[in-house]
Write a protein that binds this DNA or RNA. Structure first.
Lengths: 197, 197
DNA sequence: CCTACCGATCGGTAGG
DNA sequence: CCTACCGATCGGTAGG
């Protein structure tokens, strides 16, 4: 159901963004020059500036897409009833699915350091997401479903540290259900790797 | 027990490396110019080249230090008797301690992407370490101590994903025993975050 | 009037 | 550890 586009054929912003983000992830954002990107695209550097006003705007578009996906899952989670531990599992599972679905964007997001305005804005939203997770863990602990011998903020960070580490090795492929990966993450995170514990 | 140094006072390689790695972590390796570093050090760019032949050599020294620490723990682990699950716990705990002790070096290591020879050599050693972990998980599963319903390679990656994620938020401070952090990681990784499971 | 793009070049800074 | 530089490349913009 893609609308046939008018005008000169070539890249639109979306297809350009895909290539850019892939390259940023391979060589690092700072390590990728607009010249590198133009070569990869097969167009001139100037042509890139027809689509975006700056290199940083490409970064902004990418990290915002990742964050929008994560916050959508968080909003979905907040609408659920029932015990906090179940909502937490829903959030973990949903985050894995977003990560798998938007892998290049999430990868770029998780490597942002905070040296520019765009990066700092992204980090602020990430912290907001972390707070939602921590609150959920706290609530689940108050309901007696989460181990009380580890600080809730630490627990939250450890679990999402595990989720986020997927970007280091997960390779999406046709037929590989991301849902299975989400299952594995939930098993290890919630029940631990040890048997009979 | 530091030997008083002779010669002109100023930076030696070690103190220069500390500053460089800190800056690399703040701004990214590619995002840090030797000019930036020289300003931070309060010496000229050329003066840096008195200590090291290249920017990349600074990277090499840093990542090698991190890797040496991790492999020392791995060697220690291999010398232990007993069940694989206990050796695995020793390896996880030891890795957290190395991470906490050599935080800036491990941080830099974990951000390496593989675009240069130095980076690829580091990634090769990291993969070697990953193999050791996976083998240990497989053995522990064969001994019936690790859940058999998740692929051992996945389990190994998830657990060390959790360990490695500590670089994103852990702040060493006087009196904060890293051993407590290692305990928390082992609890959540081995027993899960859920109570009574 | 639109979208997509080119060849050429700006002032400034990179690692060495 | 410094001064004085290099070849090359940086992110970004001009008119068409």
């Amino acid at each position: 159901m893609t609308t046939p586009r008018r005008g000169r054929p070539g890249y639109d912003l979306e297809s350009l963004l895909q290539v850019a983000v892939k390259l940023f992830n391979e060589r690092g954002y700072d390590g990728t020059s607009m010249e590198d990107l133009s070569r990869k695209l097969g167009i001139t550097k100037s042509a890139i500036y027809h689509h975006v006003p700056s290199k940083e705007e490409l970064l902004r578009l990418a990290v915002d897409r990742a964050l929008d996906g994560l916050f959508e899952v968080a909003a979905e989670t907040a609408r659920l009833d029932g015990r906090a531990i179940d909502r937490l599992e829903h959030l973990v599972r949903g985050s894995v699915l977003v990560l798998a679905d938007q892998l290049p964007f999430v990868t770029l997001l998780l490597r942002v350091r905070g040296n520019t305005k765009v990066e700092r804005a992204a980090l602020t939203r990430r912290r907001e997401f972390d707070r939602l997770v921590t609150d959920l863990v706290k609530q689940a602990e108050a309901e007696g479903d989460v181990r009380p011998d580890v600080d809730p903020a630490v627990t939250a960070r450890l679990v999402f540290g595990m989720v986020n580490s997927l970007i280091e090795w997960y390779k999406p492929r046709r037929g590989s259900a991301a849902a299975e990966l989400a299952d594995a993450v939930c098993k290890v995170a919630f029940e631990g790797l040890r048997t009979g514990s």
